[in-house]
């Protein structure tokens, strides 16, 4: 899972599998962070329009 775990090897299987995994984790984290930051900004700006 992490390069510091002793079985870690820099081979194609690890690149593909963990590459995809970290990519997805990044998308989810960035997406959630964006939502939270935008929400805080909107709330502070007093934007409370119903959609």
């Amino acid at each position: 899972m992490f390069p510091f775990i002793f079985e870690w090897v820099w081979d194609s299987g690890h690149y593909i599998f963990f590459g995809a995994m970290w990519y997805v984790i990044c998308i989810l984290t960035v997406g959630l962070t964006y939502c939270l930051v935008k929400t805080v900004k909107d709330t502070l700006a007093g934007d409370n329009d119903h959609h």
């Binding site: 939502c35 939270l36 929400t39 805080v40 909107d42 709330t43 007093g46 409370n48 119903h50 959609h51």
Partner: peptide, 11 residues
């Protein structure tokens, strides 16, 4: 308001 905006943004 915070939850309302959060729901809106997440949507």
């Amino acid at each position: 308001p915070f939850f309302h905006n959060l729901g809106h943004t997440m949507h």
